[in-house]
Simulated scan of single mutants.
Amino acid sequence: MGGFYGGLRLSTAERYDCETDQWSLIAPMNKKRTFASAAVLNDKIYVAGGDDGNNCINYLNSVEVYDPDTNRWTFVAPMLFEREDFSCVAFHGCLYALGGCNETSSDLSTEKYDPAEDKWTEIPGMVIPSYCSKVEVIDDKILHAVSYHLLTELVRSSKNTPEDKFLHICLCKSQKSHRNSFDFGLCLIYVQQILSRTIFGRTNMF
């Protein structure tokens, strides 16, 4: 969904059919987007933020949702902050937007979207603000891998924690990777209760 082609921003989107091993075009998004983030919530695809500028960066806070049953994209409430190079994740019926940057800041707060109310709200920020980070839901927590090999998690509110908050939990083993390599090459993989990190094809256990 979105991206670059020949230096131009795209609004096109494609779908992969694993049974036929083929890609096909679906309806294009309403906005051209690069460096956006997407997540699946309630069997629909949400794409948020990014930028749509061709000759200059134009940060976006708009959000649209794709319904595979109707093959249509529809705008929903925009995020509170314009942002790109961030991560979205679905968690407990809401959509979370973490990190990123825009023209004025690379220290953006965290916000979550409630589809029932079509509303974004700001929540307590991460321990270490970041961009180009990756997130995954594991053991009913949002695991957030950020720059400089740091790993944090979002702890849900409970009797012991009155509000959602992020905690610093550990450091990755390797301290040798260049920061940019870590930022742009990181993937979180969760398979059979094993968490690993892959950097340009190399996988190391935490």
Rank of each mutant, 00 (worst) to 15 (best):
E136Y: 00
E136A: 14
Y5M: 13
K176E: 11
W120N: 02
D69M: 12
S62D: 04
C132L: 10
C132R: 03
N160T: 12
K31D: 12
K32F: 13
W73G: 00
Y113Q: 09
I194C: 09
N54Y: 00
A38Q: 10
L167N: 14
S157F: 12
I142N: 01
V63Y: 07
C56G: 10
P28F: 01
N180Q: 12
A36M: 13
K119L: 09
K165W: 09
F182N: 05
M126L: 05
D118H: 02
E163R: 11
K134M: 06
S177T: 08
S158V: 09
Y46E: 03
P124I: 13
Q175L: 09
G50W: 00
S37V: 05
P115D: 08
D140Q: 14
G3V: 00
P129N: 12
H92V: 03
S87Y: 06
A90P: 08
R9M: 06
M126K: 02
D85K: 11
S106P: 01
L41V: 03
K31M: 13
H178C: 12
M79Y: 02
W23I: 02
L171A: 12
F35A: 14
R156E: 11
G185H: 08
G6Y: 14
D67Y: 13
K119W: 03
L41Y: 00
K32Y: 04
A145E: 02
I57E: 07
D183F: 10
V135F: 00
K173G: 09
Q175A: 12
Q22N: 07
D43L: 00
S157H: 12
C170L: 11
S174I: 06
C18S: 13
K44E: 13
T74C: 12
